[in-house]
Simulated assay, not measured.
Amino acid sequence: MMRIRVLGSSAGGGFPQWNCNCPNCDGLRRGTVMARARTQSSIAVSANDLDWLLVNASPDILTQIRDTPELQPARSVRDSGIAAVLLMDAQIDHVTGLLMLRERASALPLLATPEVLTELGKGFPITGILSHYCGVAPHALPTDGRSFTAPGLDGIGLQAVPLSSRPPPYSPFRGNPRPGDNIGLVLQNPSNGARVFYAPGLGEVTPELLDLMSSCAVVLVDGTFWTGDEMQRLGLSTKAAADMGHLPQSGPGGMLEQLARLPVATRKLLIHINNTNPILIEDSAERAALTRLGIEVAHDGMDIHF
C-alpha cells in the first residue's frame, strides 16, 4: 500500500497568515471560529514508510518534518527519510524550503521541469545558493506523457502533466506562461494500478485533464479560493483568482462543477487553501456544501492510502 502524507494544506502565507486580519485569520487567533491552523502546501509520498518523495518544499518544511516522525528514520547520526524532492512549479511557497535542506551530506536529487529548473537557476537562484552547501542533482522531468521514477524511490510510478496556470510573479514569463511552468502529478501504485492526481495550482480543467482525473482513485486538487473575486471583496488584492492562476470552487465552470463530473467512487480532496477561503471554517455553509458533494478538505497530517 502506498501512502501520501499531507505535510501542509494551506496556500502561500499559511493559516493564519502572519499579517492578515481577515475574518478567518482573526477568528482563528481569537478562538472564535471552528478551524485548525495550516502550514504551506506540500505532500510526502512513500511506498515503504521509510524512503519519501517530498513534493514541493515549503517555507514551513522544518515544522513539517518535526511533525512527521517518519521523515526522520534515525538510521545514522545524521539522516533523513527524504530521498528526493519534486517541484510542481517555481512559486516561492513551494521552493523556499529547499534552503532548509542545505546540511544534507550529498547532493539533493531535485526533479522539476526544465522551465522550473531555469527559474531556480536565474530568477530565484536557489540552486546556485545550494551549490555552496549540499548542492543539487537536477533531474529534468518529461512532460510528454512518459512515466518516470525518482532516485531512491523505484516503488512509485510518476507522470508529469502540464497544466494551465501561471509562473511566479518574479518570472519573466509571468504574462506568457509555458507548458512546463506548472504541472500536475500522477502517482501510481505499481502493485495494484491505483492512481492519484495531485495539482495544488490549477487554472483550468480541460476535457483531456478531466478524462485523466476520471481514471484516478484519488484527486487532490487546487482549493485556493471559494470565489473568483474573494481577495478583491475583502480588500486584500486587486487580483482575481484567475489572475493568480487558480480556478475557484464556486461559480459556473468552477472546481465543484468539474469534480461533480468525476466518478462517484473517486475520492475528491481540496488542498492549497487560501487563508480567506470560508471552507477553512468547519461549520460554515461552504464546508457543508462540500460535504454534501462528497468533497473533503485536506489538512496537515492527513494520510491518504492507495
Rank of each mutant, 00 (worst) to 15 (best):
I4W: 06
R5K: 15
L7Y: 05
P23S: 12
G27T: 06
V33P: 07
V33M: 12
T39R: 15
I43H: 01
A44I: 05
V55W: 01
V55N: 00
I65T: 02
R66C: 13
E70G: 15
S80Y: 11
L87M: 08
Q91L: 07
M100V: 11
R102L: 09
L111A: 03
G121C: 01
G121D: 02
I126M: 02
Y133A: 13
C134L: 03
H139L: 08
P142T: 06
T143E: 02
G152W: 06
I156T: 06
A160R: 05
A160E: 06
L163R: 01
S164E: 14
Y170W: 13
S171M: 10
F173G: 05
L187N: 03
Q188M: 08
Q188G: 06
S191I: 14
F197D: 04
Y198Q: 06
M213I: 08
S214R: 13
V218M: 03
T224A: 13
R233E: 13
T238L: 15
T238N: 15
G245A: 04
L247V: 02
G251C: 04
G251S: 06
G254H: 10
R261H: 12
V264T: 15
H272R: 07
P278I: 11
P278K: 12
A285D: 14
A285F: 09
E286H: 11
A288Y: 11
T291D: 12
I295V: 14
V297M: 11
A298R: 09
M302S: 05
